[in-house]
């Protein structure tokens, strides 16, 4: 896959960990997902089976941000939820975890080292976003960034992973994303905010 598109996807992930507004995070996630879809289409040219996966990735890149935008509109926040850590600390943690993950990963022999490292970096960024951002919508995007990492590696394999990407994406849209969005609505209805720090009743 094109190094530029991989870099764009990783860069968008890093920025999502830093931006304040949910709208900006959704736009960056859309850009990341579409970059991934475009990259998959480029790789799949000439491979009939995997082009379906590439189309599925593009559709995912359109539909998921649309659903997230709907969620944002239906769960208004009076003001952006303050981050637990300042921007500089978040940048250090997120970029550091992505770099460490990429450095740890040995050569997997797929023939596309940039995609291998980009995939593991995106998974690390997704985990960091879930850990560092409090709003439910940011945590949902964190999950989806990590999934983008797995799909990046799958899409970079010549011939793709027949069936797995399509099934995974279909399942994402039908079940997991639906559940995550339903939870976000309920949390907002219950607490008047999507701030997960307000959900801190269960402690041992």
């Amino acid at each position: 896959m094109s190094g530029f598109l991989i870099g764009l996807a990783v860069g968008c992930g890093l920025l999502i960990a830093l931006v304040r507004r949910r709208r900006s995070a959704i736009a960056l996630f859309a850009l990341q997902s579409l970059a991934l879809g475009m990259g998959a289409i480029a790789v799949s040219t000439g491979y009939g089976e995997s082009s379906l996966a590439a189309v599925a990735l593009v559709l995912r890149g359109i539909s998921l941000p649309a659903l997230l935008a709907l969620l944002r509109r239906r769960t208004p926040e009076p003001r952006p939820v303050a981050a637990t850590l300042p921007v500089s600390a978040r940048l250090l943690l997120v970029a550091g975890s992505a770099l460490l993950a990429a450095a740890w990963l040995p050569d997997l022999g797929t023939g596309d080292r940039a995609a291998e490292q980009g995939a593991i970096a995106l998974v690390a960024i997704g985990i960091a976003v879930v850990a560092l951002r409090r709003p439910t919508l940011f945590q949902a995007i964190g999950l989806l960034i990590a999934e983008n990492g797995a799909y990046l590696l799958a899409a970079s394999i010549p011939g793709g992973v027949p069936g797995l990407i399509e099934l995974g994406i279909a399942f994402d849209l039908v079940a997991i994303t639906a559940v995550v969005i339903a939870f976000s609505f309920r949390i907002h209805r219950e607490l008047g905010s999507g701030d997960t720090d307000l959900l801190r009743g269960l402690r041992d």
């Binding site: 997997l108 797929t110 995939a119 998974v123 997704g126 797995a150 590696l153 992973v161 997991i176």
Partner: peptide
């Protein structure tokens, strides 16, 4: 539960793709 287990399963998915690719 949803966030932690879905995140974990995403890591597993990456491992499955690595099996397939490698």
């Amino acid at each position: 539960y949803v966030v932690l287990t879905t995140l974990g399963l995403t890591v597993t998915l990456l491992g499955i793709v690595v099996v397939f690719a490698a």
